[in-house]
Amino acid sequence: MELTVTENLEQELRVEIAGEDHTFMNVLKGALLETEGVAAATYDVNPEQSGGQTEPILTVKTEDGVDPIDALKTAAQRVQEKTDAFRSAFEQAA
């Protein structure tokens, strides 16, 4: 995972997350949309055969007074909360 920030505004962040695909990006996007203060979150990724930009680009827009980098950090923590909860639920059943 290698991050390259291509746009960093007060309420908008655009970052390329190299080495990831839909597997992680969609989980992250889902977590971002559940995060407070996030107005919009999406990612764009092109197929390998397209020949152009093939690494996913994440775009986060936030509401007034919320730093998109903080929102991204919160979402990353949220994903870990989800995996933790899933692991313990699974182990309990197993």
Partner: peptide, 20 residues
């Protein structure tokens, strides 16, 4: 299942470290 969960978690942790 456990290893899949670990894999997602470790990527989220890596991202968290990268933005902090």
């Amino acid at each position: 299942v456990n290893r899949a969960t670990d894999s997602i978690e470790s990527r989220a942790l890596e991202l968290e470290d990268a933005v902090s």
